[in-house]
Design a protein around this nucleic acid. Structure first.
Length: 824
RNA sequence: GCCGAAGUGGCGGAAUGGUAGACGCGCUGGUCUCAAAAACCAGUGGGGUUAGUCCCCGUGCCGGUUCGAGUCCGGCCUUCGGCACCA
């Protein structure tokens, strides 16, 4: 053992040795329960960053802890390796997405290895590997067979200068293209979708199974799905007599309809103004304003209401009234039916529209307190109340009226109860190169033909030039798109769109259970053994998309009959961000610190320890450079503790014996209390306080060995516990110290230390004496003191007496083992 | 606007309704040294003080419940995240 803590030598040595020993391979073991711990795999855009360290260190503590408490553990790692950044980097750096991606995988995997994470590297996967995306394509085919993948028209973000569709995330808040800053347009394109809406209710209802998910994530998903209850109502167009159906969540306000709205894209709009040149022009100008160039402003906050009267009327089924039909900017074609009954008195948007275009406002709900009048209103009244101006329903509470009106609609055939969702189908096509090709062939005579399973994978040609303008080279590559129709053999054309990378990541946790399986996406029995993931860890930024897509995929896989569970992640922990000086680390702010630098200078153990000590996992954590030095100082202190305070004493043989004496007993008590506290805190993910307790133990050992006799066994127990407890946090130094303590085998395979409840209880406690709730004295007493004795001691102590003085003691409250409050 | 989280020393953060500020950073003093660094030891919320194992104040603000509130309840303020015309 060297006198100085040499992190470089230790970490290099154990990194090599663990690798040689295959120390962290996962094995199925019928004698032990299993844990599948998974931290969201990274997108390889360069070396590891601090967010990775925070996430993966957290998972690693759990894995090492589970190992030592009797579990067999699956802890894999892989790369989310398809995606747009690779293409952009390739364009700006003149490289190739494949090269760029694989180079970055090298960089980040080296960092992950240097950080000592206990992954089973034999299970490493990359989503850009044909052996992986072959099965991504297989899932697409299954979805197609099940009717869950379909091609339909969608309004997509189109960048005219890049000539491609953009994902929503690639459009900046001002509606411009992330890469070229051109104004993004909405364009109707024929695209592939996954029918996630078919699973909307399952996604909602199965949240019951997710007891160990953060409530905020469930709330976000619930809002995203946006299920609402209401009714569909049929209005009749006056001119032609045709039915226009609307969806409303407020059938109780049906008598308050004073106008009617169509989305600008609604096909009826053109027909209504067909014969009227002036109106046609008005509509054209309106469309130019709302949809033509950028529809971002239209949906931006507080946008001005805008619309055009279409010259026609509809008839309200419940009261026979005719109301004018408008088209309006705030009506969305994709939600409900694209047509809206407008009730200005009780809907804020309708209210604003009515005021602008001078449309009457009719009150049909009166609030419980006070009376509204149409002229006096400055905003819509959207809450419940008593129905008025509503025919036979007058006087009924509106929440009951909701049901009564629905009954009326259903009995007369005017409409019916209905539910609606905000969730829309998942658009999975991307006009991109660096992604998994969609396994579809278009044939002039057979139509849309899926690629036969045995022809998978549809290989993404990796020898293509990525064009400078950012467009995918696939539609220009004859050798790629020219194929024979698998059905009739004539010349056909291959789909040249690739899949959204969220498809890749929606099932990667299944692949880990059998990463080399050639017969299917995963081995059913291996999945039955390892799945579901017991503990999933990742950033809160994936609260909706990745986590919901994965839940959707799992339900599809369930319906395919491959698994018998419906939710992939039993327990979820969402990490906060690492920030610096109050801001997210980013290159533009120049406040990026790189893990690699710290590993070199201070060691991986120091970095891991510091980042775990920084604060509770779910909150964001402020990086502080001086704090890292502190973590390093602590590890040096642990190093010297073992060397100077234990190993050196052993060789000198300077020991007393006296286990039962108070100072020895106090040391043992601290040791056992620390084991208890650290164990509990790891179970609760309170890693920052777990580290604090270990620090206190180390401080205690320094005191114990500084100021009196030392018992060999008492000291040995304490030092051993410290190394044991610290091992999941800082695996390298602890493995080295374990050897220095003369132990055989790896500390990471050593059973987790047990504690003695009796010893963990301190012999002496501090009795707090309060008078009227204010602390007046503290008395050291034995921990097994009775309540009566506590009261007696409290009443007798001088400081308390001073405050009691001549007043009468009215009440004494005794909290066993803690405090006495004297009320006067 | 709606939903969610959070406001505690100079800083990161601890506190099953029961000693507010554990642990760490920083700072101050001491030991060691020719000196410095490192290390070790001690101190460190603010104010007062007869200097006492003393007193007062103190967890964003205002009220309430309780013997006792950072913690529970009601009402505000601020910050951060998510969603945002979803009928």
């Amino acid at each position: 053992m060297t006198p100085q803590y040499d992190h470089r030598a230790i970490e290099e040595k154990w990194m090599e040795r663990w690798k040689e020993q295959g120390a962290y391979l996962s094995v199925q073991d019928p004698d032990r329960p299993k844990k599948y711990v998974l931290v969201m795999y990274p997108y390889p855009s360069g070396p590891a960053h601090m967010g990775h360290v925070a996430n993966y260190s957290l998972g690693d503590v759990l894995v090492r802890y589970y190992w030592r408490t009797g579990y067999t553990v699956l802890n894999p790692m892989g790369y989310d390796a398809f995606g747009l950044p690779a293409e952009n980097a390739a364009i700006s750096e003149g490289s190739h997405p494949a090269t760029w991606t694989r180079d970055n995988i090298e960089l980040i995997s080296l960092d992950l290895k240097r950080l000592g994470y206990a992954y089973d590297w034999s299970r490493e996967i990359s989503t850009c590997d044909p052996e992986y995306y072959r099965w991504t394509q297989w899932f697409f085919l299954k979805m197609y067979e099940m009717g869950l993948a379909y091609k339909g028209d969608a309004e997509a973000n189109w960048c005219p200068s890049c000539g491609t569709v953009l994902a929503n995330e690639q459009v900046l808040p001002d509606g411009s293209c992330e890469r070229c800053r051109a104004v993004v347009q909405k364009k109707w394109l024929n695209q592939w979708f996954f029918k996630i809406t078919q699973y909307a209710d399952a996604l909602l209802d199965d949240m019951e199974l997710l007891e160990d998910w953060p409530e905020r994530v469930l709330t976000m998903q619930r809002n995203w799905i946006g299920k609402s209850h209401g009714a569909q109502v049929d209005f009749t167009l006056e001119s032609t007599g045709e039915i226009i159906r609307v969806y409303t969540t407020r059938p109780d306000t049906l008598y308050g309809v004073t106008f009617f709205l169509l989305a600008p894209e609604h096909p009826l709009v053109d027909r209504l103004v067909e014969g009227d040149a002036a109106r046609r022009e008005e509509v054209a100008a309106f469309r130019e304003r709302v949809g033509g160039v950028s529809s971002f402003e239209r949906t931006a906050q507080g946008a001005e209401k805008d619309g055009v009267f279409l010259g026609d009327y509809v008839v309200n089924p419940v009261n026979g009234e005719r109301v004018p039909v408008y088209t309006a900017n705030f009506v969305l074609i994709e939600y409900g039916t694209g047509a809206v009954m407008a009730v200005p008195a009780h809907d804020q948007r309708d209210f604003e529209f009515a005021r602008k275009y001078d449309i009457p406002v009719r009150i049909v709900i009166q609030p419980p307190d006070g009376e509204l009048s149409p002229d006096g209103m400055t905003e819509a009244y959207e809450a419940t109340g008593t129905m008025v101006n509503s025919g036979d329903f007058d006087g009924i509470p509106s929440d009951l009226g909701f049901e009564d009106v629905c009954d009326l609609l259903e009995s007369r055939g005017w409409g019916e109860r209905a539910v609606n969702y905000r969730l829309r189908d998942w658009l999975v096509s991307r006009q991109r190169y660096w992604g998994a090709p969609i396994p579809i062939i278009y044939c002039d005579s057979c139509g849309t033909v899926p690629v036969p399973e045995e022809d998978l994978p549809v290989l993404l040609p990796e020898d293509l030039d990525v064009r400078r303008d950012g467009r995918s080279p696939l539609p220009l590559e004859k050798s790629f798109y020219e194929v024979e129709c698998p059905r009739c053999g004539v010349e056909a054309r291959r789909e040249t769109d690739t899949m959204d990378t969220f498809v890749d990541s929606s099932w990667y946790y299944f692949r880990f259970v059998s990463p080399h399986d050639d017969d299917g996406p995963f081995d059913v029995e291996d999945a039955a053994y390892w799945m579901p993931v017991d503990q999933y860890i990742g950033g809160i930024e994936h609260a909706i998309l990745h986590l919901m897509y994965s839940r959707f995929f799992t339900k599809v896989i369930y319906d395919l009959g491959l698994i018998d569970f419906k939710e992939p992640f039993s327990r979820l922990l969402c990490q906060g961000m690492i920030i610096m000086d109050g801001a997210k680390m980013s290159k533009s702010k120049g406040n990026v610190v790189t893990p690699g630098d710290y590993i070199d200078r201070l060691g991986a153990d120091t970095l891991r320890l510091y980042i775990l000590f920084l604060g509770p996992p779910e909150l964001s954590k402020d990086w502080n450079d001086q704090g890292v030095e502190g973590a390093r100082r602590f590890l040096s202190r642990v190093w010297r503790m073992v060397q100077e305070r234990y190993v050196a004493l052993l060789s000198q043989g300077e020991f007393a014996s006296g286990v039962d004496e108070p100072r020895h007993r106090a040391m043992r008590s601290l040791t056992h209390r620390t084991i208890k506290n650290v164990t509990r805190d790891i179970e609760e993910f309170a890693f920052n306080t777990a580290v604090s307790f270990i620090m206190e133990l180390v401080n205690g050992i320094y005191h114990y060995t500084s100021d009196g006799d030392v018992d060999r066994d008492v000291l040995g127990e304490a030092v051993e516990a410290a190394v044991n407890l610290l091992a999941p946090f800082t695996p390298f130094i602890c493995e080295e110290l374990w050897q220095a303590l003369g132990k055989h085998g790896s500390v990471h395979q050593h059973p987790w230390p047990a504690f003695d409840e009796e010893l963990a209880r301190p012999e002496e406690i501090t009795l707090v004496v309060q008078v009227n709730g204010k602390v007046r004295d503290r008395i050291a007493v034995p921990s097994d003191i009775s309540e009566a004795e506590m009261e007696a001691k409290a009443l007798a102590c001088e400081n308390a007496r001073k405050f009691i003085a001549l007043k009468e003691v009215r009440k004494v409250i005794v909290v066993p083992g803690k405090l006495v409050n004297i009320v006067v």
